[in-house]
Structure formats: C-alpha cells, structure tokens
C-alpha cells in the first residue's frame, strides 16, 4: 500500500486567447503514502492551489495522471474531501445541517439514528457541541473552519485536501486550529495534503514538505522530510534542532533560492 496516491508527470496549461498557453505547473511527480501528512508550500502564483484542484478533480490536468488507490482521478468525488480556504459552509444551514447534508449524500445507507450519531460525533470531534444548531453567520471564523474540517472528515475520505485552510484566520486562531488538526490526526489517521504559505505551519503539521518553485512552469523544487515525533508541541519545538533545521531549509528555499518580489 505504499503507492497510495500518485501524481505522474502532471502539467496544467491555461489557454490565453491569441497567445501561447500559460503553463501553471509542469512535470510534477509525487507519491504520497497512506496516512501521511504533506504540505505543499510556495510563493503565491506557484500553482500550489492548482495542484490541489487537480487532485480534487475540480480541474483537469493537461498532461499526466493522478492515481488514488489504483484508480485514476477523472473528476471530483467524496473520497477526496476538500476543506476550502473560506470554509464554504452553506449559510442557510446550521452547523449540524451542513455536516448532515454531506453525510446523507455520501452514506445514504445510514438509518436516521446512525446519521444523527455520525454527525454528532464529528461535531464533537472539533469541540463544537455547544454550537451545533448555530448558523455559520453566528459563529467565528475559526469555528466555521472547524465545521469545514468536520464536514470533510465526516464523509470518510481517503484523502483530506486542505487549500490554505487557516490562511484567512488570525495567528492565534490559526494555532488553535492546527492543534485541533493534530489532535484529530492523533486519534483518526487520515492522509492529508495541506496547501500553505506558512513555514511554521508546514513544519509543525507535516511528515513531508513539498516546496514548489515559482511560476509560470512551476514544479517541485525540493522535498523535505520532517523527522519529528508526534504528538508535537509547538512551544517545545522552538528549540528542537530538527525543527530548526527544517524551518531553515524551507526559509532558505523560499527566500534565497526562489525569492520572489511581490509587487
């Protein structure tokens, strides 16, 4: 089961009228093991979100193929659940209903009691029992993102895809959500791909960090193994030589080898 999810020679071109195609990413080869957490990091415009959309099946690659569990990815599906950057909860449904909608669709065989049980279990998993009947507008940004995570996990995906899941949150809330994610991962193993531009987040959460070169024609620059024991403690890690090594490796990649001027 080592070859769980693989990307082979992926290229994504976007047509531009009356000009040559824009090549967002090219030549991406990547193998992801089961229950592995990887981060994809890079400057904006490096095609990391494009890559995630391809894996999610929301977009189609121009070249190459993506294989999950020996099945080629041809479109979106619940076995590849996505946590979107802006949570994407349906504002007219309560926390409970947002998760219920997903579970009901993906597991139609559940009895009403089982359905209720499953939804409640995942609400509890992200510690939102007190807000279960609240509408998205009534809860904070961090809580919304937790619901997004609960919704994604509730449909028992093979891979959890997270597109800059905490990018829109303040740093304290972000830390809190990272803790939630690590705690959940500790009890229920998932294969997770996180798109991020936060160096600390990448090191803290991942087993491997995929570093992307700058676009156009972005590709994988380096892959970093993070050899840190779990559970990880963000405070203690600050002085851990391995943590410091990983951090420096990413920083050097992003700001020395592939520095980018943001206009």
């Amino acid at each position: 089961m080592s070859k769980f999810l693989s990307l082979e020679k992926i290229e994504k071109r976007f047509p531009i009228p009356a000009k040559e195609d824009y090549i967002a990413v090219t030549n991406v080869d990547l193998e992801i093991k089961k229950d592995e957490i990887i981060s994809i990091i890079g400057h904006s415009g490096c095609g990391k979100s494009t890559l995630l959309n391809l894996i999610a099946g929301l977009d189609k690659q121009s070249e190459g193929k993506i294989v999950l569990n020996n099945k080629e990815v041809t479109g979106p599906g619940p076995e590849r659940a996505v946590v979107f950057q802006n949570h994407s909860l349906l504002p007219w449904l309560s926390v409970y209903q947002n998760i219920e909608m997903a579970v009901k669709k993906v597991m139609p065989e559940l009895s009403p009691a089982e359905l209720r049980q499953r939804v409640e279990k995942f609400v509890s998993m992200v510690n939102l029992d007190h807000a279960i009947d609240k509408l998205p507008a009534e809860i904070s940004g961090g809580m919304k993102q937790r619901v997004g995570i609960a919704r994604a996990l509730s449909i028992k995906p093979d891979v959890l895809l997270m597109d800059e899941p905490f990018g829109a949150l303040d740093s304290l809330t972000r830390a809190n959500l990272q803790e939630h994610l690590m705690r959940i991962q500790q009890s229920v193993k998932n294969t997770v791909i996180i798109i991020t531009h936060d160096v600390d987040e990448a090191v803290l959460l991942s087993d491997r960090v995929i570093m992307m070169t700058n676009g156009p024609e972005a590709t994988i620059g380096e892959i970093l193994e993070v050899n840190l024991e779990r559970p990880r403690n963000r405070v203690e890690l600050q002085h851990d030589p391995e943590y410091i090594r990983c951090r420096e490796a990413i920083l050097s990649f992003l700001y020395e080898k592939f520095a980018k001027d943001d206009e």
Partner: peptide, 26 residues
C-alpha cells in the same frame, strides 16, 4: 451562487436536481 458552494456540490457529487434544490434555490 458562489463558486465555493458549487465546488462543495461537486465534491459531494450532487446530481443536477440536488444542485438546484440544495444550493441554487436557497
């Protein structure tokens, strides 16, 4: 209707009717 809601519907493999009644109409 926000693209994000439609993406949610796509990931969950909603049928066109489910898209209309669960996402678009609300």
């Amino acid at each position: 209707v926000s693209e994000d809601y439609m993406n949610v519907a796509k990931v969950l493999c909603f049928t066109p009717m489910e898209k209309v009644f669960q996402i678009i109409l609300p």
